[in-house]
């Protein structure tokens, strides 16, 4: 049995990142709850990190830069998730729903 070795080419990782971005955009557009949209946004951030790490591994002379960039993306994603989740909890207290169509009123 033989198997193609694809994990040493840049294009494979770029394809994986494009796939993750596609799933993220699909989820953001399709989902009808704020938490579902947040989950899909995490997929998009992950796609960005994979892209940075792929270019870091195959093209960049200093392999530290991409790793630090991906680490900062992770920190920002954690902060963003915490903020969005507390906003969701506040929205739920006011509207008794997390459907984005129902939160159409600006002043509470």
């Amino acid at each position: 049995m033989e198997i193609p070795v694809v994990y040493n080419t840049l294009e494979t990782y770029l394809l994986i990142a494009a796939l993750l971005l596609g799933f993220g955009i699909y989820g953001i557009l399709k989902n009808r709850s704020l938490i579902g949209i947040l989950i899909s946004a995490e997929l998009v951030l992950c796609a960005a990190s994979v892209n940075f790490m792929a270019f870091n591994r195959f093209l960049v002379p200093d392999p530290v830069v991409g790793q630090i960039f991906a680490l900062f993306i992770m920190g920002l994603a954690a902060a963003e998730a915490a903020i969005i989740l507390s906003i969701i909890v506040a929205v739920y207290r006011n509207y008794k729903s997390i459907d984005p169509e129902e939160t159409a009123e600006l002043a509470g």
């Binding site: 990142a17 494009a18 796939l19 971005l21 596609g22 799933f23 955009i25 699909y26 557009l29 399709k30």
Partner: peptide, 22 residues
């Protein structure tokens, strides 16, 4: 059309990026 439309947009984006990468 929300589901198929989202799928179309995402597939177009993925296809474009994949073609660009290859």
């Amino acid at each position: 059309l929300a589901g198929p439309g989202a799928f179309a947009v995402a597939a177009l984006m993925t296809w474009g990026l994949a073609a660009l990468a290859l």
